[in-house]
Each structure stands twice: as C-alpha cells, then as structure tokens.
Design a binder for these strands. Structure first.
Lengths: 345, 345
DNA sequence: CTGTTAGCGCATTCAA
DNA sequence: TTGAATGCGCTAACAG
C-alpha cells in the first residue's frame, strides 16, 4: 500500500479576507497590526472574516517586509554524548516557553564540535537572516560564539558569563552563593567536618562552587576535609576508592557536597561500601536537581536552578536589543534554590 | 553603563553580488540553484563574488517565492516535569542533526498541556506557513496531534505508532524484541527465575515490553516470578518494599528487568537492603541507556535506542511527503541494542 | 478611518 | 548561456 502526499490546500491570503469582509487588504493588515486605527464596526467584520477563513499572515512574507523574523536562534552546546549537560533539556523547554510568551519561536541549531563550526553556524543564521537574535548556553569566559556574534553585530544573550571587553549580555546563577547555602544547611544540621567532591576539570562555575563552599565553611568555622590523592579525581571506581579512604580515615567528614548530581552517586557508593548509611551517618548533597534526585534512595538534596527565570531574562535581554532599546551593560546573577531531601536531613 | 544595540549591518543582497561579478541577478541565482546552467568561467567569477561578500540568500524571500520553508516543526511532548521522558534530549539532538543533513532547520514548539493546545499549535504553524512538515514524538495509539495534522493535510512523521485509519507515517522501536533480547541475555547467564518491574500505567510500549519479556521467558522455559501485591506498583518506597518481600520469599528471582532506567534504582535499593549485591547475587537491567547507567555502581545493563537512525528515518519519511513522493504506507520498526554492563554480567 | 501605491529579496517565467 | 520582467504575501508610506 502506498499513500501519495495529500497536497496541502492553499492557505488563505490577506486578499481573500479583504474580499470576504468587503474592505481593502490594508484594513485587514491594520486589523491585525494596528487595531486602534480601525473603526470598531469594520474591526468586528474583518475579525469575523479572519476567523471564518482561518487566516494567519504568512510569516515569510511578513518577515520579508518588516525585517523581523520573530524567531530566536538557539545554538545548542556540543555536549559530550557520554556526559550531557544535565539541565539542558529543562533549559530548552523554559527557553521555548519564554520566547513563546513574547511571540517568538525558537530555531534549534547544532553545530558540530569546534569553534569553527560554531562560527560558521552563526554566520549562516545571520547571513540568511533566519533569526532576530541568538541565545547561547553553557557559555564560558572565553567563548568563540559570543565573540563571533558580537563581531557580526547580532543581538545575543548568553547563559554564562562572557569575558570583559565583550558585551555583557548574560545571565548566570550565583554558584558561590548556592554552595554557601549548602554549607549553611549542613552547618545548621550540626555538621562540623565537611567534604567537597568535584571533577578535575575546572571551568569557572566549578571554581565558583568550590570557592563558595570553602569561604562559607571558613566563615562558619567548619573544617573542610582535604581530599586524599586521587580524589575527587576521576569519576567512577577511582573516585569511590578515594572517598572510601577518606571515610575510613581519622578525619572522616559527616557531610559531603558534590558539584553535580551524578558524582553524588559515587559518594553514595563509597558510603554504603563502608557500611554507613547516606542521610543517617553521612549527609550528601548534589547540584542541578535532576529527576534522578527524587528517585535515589535516600532522595538527594540538591540545588535547583531557576531555569524559567533564566530563560525569561535571556529573552528579555535579547528582545530589548532587537528592538533597539538600550540594554543594561552588566550581566545578571540569579539565585538558585536549595531543595532539601532525605540525604541530608 | 549602557550599551545601545549595534545596528546589524545590512546584509548582502543578490543584486550586490550581481554587480560585483558583472552579471545579472538571475545568473547569481542560477549559480546557486542550477550551477549546470552557468558557464564555468562565469560560475567561478560569481562564486568568488559570493564568498567575498559573504552572500547567503535571504531565507524569507526564498521561502516566499518557492513555498519551501526548509524548516521542520517539532512539537515537544508535554512531559510531566517530575518525570520527563529520559530520551527526549538525545532524540532532539539526533533530529536536529538529521534535519541539518537534509538542509533543514528545526523549529521547536511547546504547546501547553492538553489536546486543544496541541491542535492550536499545529494550526498556527500550518496557517502561518512556518514549516514544511511536523515531527511528533511520544506518539501513542490515539493521538490528537496526528489526527489534526492528517486532517490539515500537513506532512508529518511520528516517533511512535499511530492508530489504524490514519496515515502510517511512523517509526518505532521493537519494544518486544528488545525485552526478548534482555531475557535471552539473562538466560545465557544462567538465570532461570526472573522478574519484571514496570509502572502501573500501561501505555502500549509498556505492554509490548511486558509481553516481549513474558513470551521469550516462556519460550526459553524460564520461570517468571509474579510480583506480590503492591509491586511493581508505585515507584519509590512502596515499590522497594514490595521488591524486598519478593526477594525474601521462596520464589526469589535471580534477575530483575526494569522497564526503564530510573525504576532500576528501586531494584538496586531493594537488593542492597536485603544484604544482596547487584550483579553478583541479582542481575538487574534497565531500558533507554541514559547516562545514569554508566554512573551507577555497578553500571547498569540497559537497552540503547537507535536515536540517530530513528531521527534519520523520520526526516526521510517527512521530506518524501514534502517533495510529493509516494511514501510507503506502513510504519517502520527499528531494533534496539542491548548494552551489557556489570549489573548483569 | 480607509484605500492606493510601492517594494522587501528572490526564483521563475519568457525573450534575446 | 544570459538578461528583463513578473509576482510570491505582506506592510509602510502616503493620499483621499
């Protein structure tokens, strides 16, 4: 059995609506774009015709005429497929919703790995005039995407801090303050000796988390246990081994904060392997509040990022530039929220 | 400090390229769209001019003229934010790549919950002629989105089987065969008594997995342990309790297959709580092969979905309709791949 | 308040 | 092989 494509029926045009309502095309256009300039009676008649015919302006024609695309380009970060950024799915959802609230669609672009591919993708989007502006996520201090967008004069907004010297159109969370919240929470539960688990890689946000952890611990007079050689170290078995050594030693921490949710799994494993119980003997916390947290036993305390607020701010920042409004020159820092669960009660 | 938006410099048009190359606009157009109709020398001259000026055709103008949008609309499934579909992020990445390989972008749309919102979103996209076709994911047997797209005559392709009576433009994995693979793997490891953990909800793919599991177990003469009341049941503590009861009973299975990766966490917990070891005493398997699998201790055996093949097939199916080619009338079933890890070795 | 005119940038006729 | 005209559907400017 074979099915031919059903030819989509030709869409209604503005001329057909105008004829049906007995007005000119311009009046139909005004009805949609400047209703205050149309007589109420006419407005009603045209509106009725629009609804009856199911008319919607052709976005391509409108874009060609006005220059506005009503579309935001999102350059997906090129994740390591073996360790995807755990919050990108949620962030993208929030971005689409925020853009939709402002009447904009989101066009998804995924360059292959490497700065050159990202630059080409940006040039392509800009030259073909497919978007009004760009949103980047996972932006680090020096970022080829940001530099290229700035050079091309395209409006953009970044989730993550840009380098000085570039336009500061970014939003980020306060990683340091979030880790300080974690430390205060642990201190309030009576913990006096605490540990911090991070990867060897040290992006700026990781450094901020580490620093926030140490600073707040110092302020509260907590002892921060130094990781033994090999820990935090590589994830998986090596890290578990290092953590077990730490737990067996004389300086055993009563609480361990992980820089993210997945590494907390290594902590769970080390604690159990030492015959201890997470939550009862050793408190554990994560970061990002992925769905995993609620499914773990015990459920994992974590830091929830305000993804909807981040997305809304990015869209606002971006559209202000698109509209030619002046834009505050400094990045915006948003607070994250600690979600306490059984792993640290 | 305040930064005004830098006005994006006017993009190069076809006329400017024509002037620079000393030819007419049509020749430039031909250079791009029908190079075989242009004299080699002219071609080279025009191509050089295009590169020097960084010219790319304005996509809106081209769309208006040709009717082609070169854009695929993706209606994101409205996930339960507390239990998002674990493979949607990976699927979307694969879809963007597959579309890009065919010269198409992906426009992301996220209707609010409910069939009515989905229908409105589809009508909007179609009426405003923003996309050439639609891709749906998480499609169940009766799906309002598919029905609407079919009625509107928009080309579409679905990840998940559609109801009979509708166009069968879908791709799905063979859930039953995948679970049969799991059973065969367990049998090969010497397991004779096996259990299956699923949610109470019973979407078609869940039923297929259950059925595939039971059928293959029967065929191989394995004993399938009946879940006690309350299990599989609700996730979390209730399910763990039911599983522990099962493990304590006389019919203790030596292997348990979960319908997805996250539920496998409940199995891990139950096994440990009974003083047993996952992998050594009880084999456990998941489904979806999320990043979680590699981070668990022990790493979780799981079923990996061929997301790239699924996405490529969907795009091919969709674009065939867009181009008016005849399309095979039956859905396509793809095989998944078992990834064996320490949890079932 | 409404209608007329013009042109956004491109690809597709047709004519040379 | 190349060039000149036409119009896709829409909205901004102007005229009435």
């Amino acid at each position: 059995m074979t099915q031919g494509a059903r030819p989509p029926r030709r869409a209604t045009t503005i001329a057909e609506v105008a004829r049906a309502a007995g007005v000119s095309r311009q009046t139909v256009s005004n009805t949609l774009n400047a209703p205050h300039r149309v007589h109420p009676d006419t407005l009603a008649r045209v509106t009725t015709a629009i609804e009856e015919l199911g008319y919607r302006p052709d976005q391509s024609a409108r874009s060609l005429r006005t220059g506005e695309r009503r579309t935001i380009g999102y350059l997906a970060p090129v994740d390591d497929p073996f360790d995807p950024n755990p919050l990108m799915a949620g962030f993208l959802e929030a971005l689409v919703d925020a853009a939709g609230a402002e009447g904009h669609r989101v066009l998804l672009v995924r360059p292959t790995a490497g700065d050159e591919a990202a630059r080409a993708a940006i040039d392509e989007l800009v030259a073909a005039r497919q978007v009004d502006g760009l949103v980047f996520a996972d932006v680090l201090h020096e970022d080829a995407r940001v530099a290229r967008a700035a050079r091309a004069g395209v409006p953009f907004a970044a989730f993550g801090r840009t380098a000085p010297g570039l336009p500061q159109h970014w939003v980020d969370i306060d990683n340091g303050a979030a880790m300080a919240d974690v430390v205060r929470h642990l201190a309030a539960r009576g913990h006096r000796r605490v540990g911090f688990v991070a990867s060897d890689a040290e992006p700026p946000w990781m450094a901020a988390r580490r620093e926030g952890f140490h600073a707040e611990a110092r302020r509260l007079g907590l002892e921060v246990v130094q990781s033994p050689p090999g820990a935090p170290g590589a994830p998986g078995a090596p890290r578990v081994a290092a953590l077990r050594e730490l737990l067996r030693g004389p300086q055993r921490p009563t609480a361990v904060a992980a820089e993210s949710d997945l590494p907390a799994l290594d902590v769970y494993e080390a604690v159990r392997a030492e015959g201890l119980a997470v939550g009862r003997d050793i408190a554990v916390t994560g970061f990002h509040d992925t769905p995993l947290c609620r499914h773990l036993h015990p459920a994992l305390t974590s830091v929830r990022l305000p993804l909807r607020a981040i997305a809304a701010t990015l869209v606002r920042l971006l559209l202000a530039q698109v509209r030619g409004e002046s834009v505050p020159g400094a990045g915006q820092v948003l607070a994250a929220e600690l979600v306490v669960r059984a792993s640290s009660e």
